[in-house]
C-alpha cells in the first residue's frame, strides 16, 4: 500500500518537474533578446508564416512581461495558460480578448503596429501590465 502511495507521489512529482522543466525551457525563449534588441521568436512548426512569440500566463503573471517587436509587421502571439486559474489575455490597444482555461493554449494575430508601447494584461487579474515595445527595424 505504502509502496503504491510512494509510487503515486513520486510519479506525480516527476510529472510536475517535467512540466516545469518543459515550460522553463520555453519561458526563456521570448524573454531573451537577439542582437538587435528584439525578442526571440518561438520556433513552432505550426506557425511558420508570421513571426511568432510566446506569452505564458500564470495566475496573473505574464511571462515575459515585455516583448520587443518590429514596427508595421504582422506577428503572432502564442498564449498559454500555465497557471492554476482561468486567465483572459486582453488588450484594447492590441484589439484582443481571449479566455483561456487552465492548460489551454491559443494564438492571436496582431495587426501591423506603429512604433510605440502597447499594453496587455490578464483581465481576470489586471494588476500586472505586460508591454509590447514596437521599434524600428533599422
Amino acid at each position: 500500500m505504502k509502496f503504491f502511495r510512494n509510487l503515486f507521489f513520486s510519479s506525480f512529482i516527476a510529472v510536475i518537474a517535467a512540466n516545469s522543466f518543459a515550460s522553463a525551457s520555453d519561458i526563456s525563449i521570448s524573454s531573451q533578446k537577439d542582437a538587435d534588441g528584439f525578442s526571440v521568436e518561438l520556433n513552432d512548426p505550426r506557425y511558420t508564416k508570421l513571426k511568432t512569440y510566446l506569452v505564458e500566463m500564470k495566475d496573473g503573471d505574464l511571462i515575459p512581461a515585455e516583448l520587443v517587436v518590429p514596427e508595421k509587421t504582422r506577428f503572432r502571439i502564442v498564449i498559454r495558460n500555465i497557471g492554476n486559474k482561468p486567465a483572459e489575455f486582453e488588450s484594447n490597444q492590441l484589439r484582443q480578448e481571449k479566455v483561456l482555461f487552465m492548460k489551454a493554449e491559443t494564438s492571436v494575430v496582431i495587426i501591423p503596429l506603429d512604433i510605440g508601447t502597447y499594453d496587455y494584461f490578464d483581465d481576470f487579474a489586471p494588476t500586472t501590465l505586460g508591454k509590447i515595445i514596437v521599434k524600428g527595424k533599422e
Binding site: Q93, P112, G116
Partner: peptide
C-alpha cells in the same frame, strides 16, 4: 490600407484603456 492600422492619437498617459476605469 496603411492608415487603417496607424495610431490616430495617443491618450494613454491621460487615461489608459488598460486601467480598470479605462477598460
Amino acid at each position: 490600407p496603411a492608415w487603417m492600422y496607424s495610431n490616430m492619437w495617443d491618450m494613454t498617459s491621460v487615461l489608459s484603456d488598460s486601467s480598470v476605469l479605462g477598460n
